[in-house]
Write a protein that binds this DNA or RNA. Sequence first.
DNA 1: AAAGGTAAACCGTCCAGCCGGTACAGTACA
DNA 2: TGTACTGTACCGGCTGGACGGTTTACCTTT
Lengths: 179, 179
Amino acid sequence: MSSSRERILDSFESALIRAGERAATMDAVAAAADVSKGGLLYHFPSKEALVDGLAERLRSLAEVDREAMRSDPEGAARYYVRTSIFEDSALDRSLVSMARLAQQGHPTAKASLAEIQDRWLDALESQLGNRTTALAVKLLGDGLYYDAAFFASAGSGRTSAGEIAALLDVVDLIVHAGP
Amino acid sequence: MSSSRERILDSFESALIRAGERAATMDAVAAAADVSKGGLLYHFPSKEALVDGLAERLRSLAEVDREAMRSDPEGAARYYVRTSIFEDSALDRSLVSMARLAQQGHPTAKASLAEIQDRWLDALESQLGNRTTALAVKLLGDGLYYDAAFFASAGSGRTSAGEIAALLDVVDLIVHAGP
DNA sequence: AAAGGTAAACCGTCCAGCCGGTACAGTACA
DNA sequence: TGTACTGTACCGGCTGGACGGTTTACCTTT
């Protein structure tokens, strides 16, 4: 079985995604992780520590993703939009849960997300050679991502595979038009 | 002075935008609206009623905006992206505050937002005559909007006016390429 | 015009319950 | 013997909501 520490972080993420920050209480997380409250506080002495743990995990996952984006055979732009459909990957979950915290005004979460966003934009720009093109591609992906994150539990799969394919054509159009 | 009812709704919005759902307590809203807690509960007998009040206001603001979009001289696509920069309008505030609630898993807020999103997409599609083009334009605007909503209090004006202008060129490109 | 009535628009306080966190004694296992 | 917990009991602070007044505005009736 995975370590208690990881299980706790997973449970914290799940609670955040499913029901928001308010429902992600220490008691709820401990119960979901099959750990006593004392056990939870042994690993993470405060809720802030729990958030820090999540932020660190997100940072490393995002770094791996940026590397994958850089070396994707279809190019960074297509990669970014293609992977912007919410498919419940470790990165997706980490990102959405951090977004939930950021929306509550949590400073650590906000800073963590802002940093990651900037790095993604930089990575796109360095490959596409153009700030506007990079921004347009990123925004398109972000729109897709946020919509999915918002309505994840509602109408599942609001954007179909066919629509994504068509959208990728639009991405090609934007990228090729760039100087 | 504006009516207590409107002032309460405004205060509720402000609290949600500035500090998230958790900080938007009944006490805080009452204090900000310069009304006693009893007075607040007179107008809105529960927190749910407060959300309903916000949802209704959002619905009517969104309807006005769709009408403006339909008849904009520059076209619906440009209008949508142009107005996706968060500029603290009544609609912006209403939308962001409802998004905060939706992120907390609030059913009314989720449904309200989902409905509005669909209508916007329909309005874009009916003018652009193409689903994919409409979706691309909408996602671009959504990305812009969500980013702004997330980092509103952080780096103010993360997307400059010049970048918006360049982005609007990209919008033209997408729209003209459509069949 | 004075008196009386009434309903809407509030005020201030109290309460049960939940939340994060503390404290600590005990336990399984390597 | 130390590490990694469990379980329980507890606390202060905050939250949504209930509730019983009180003020204000506007009629009627006399």
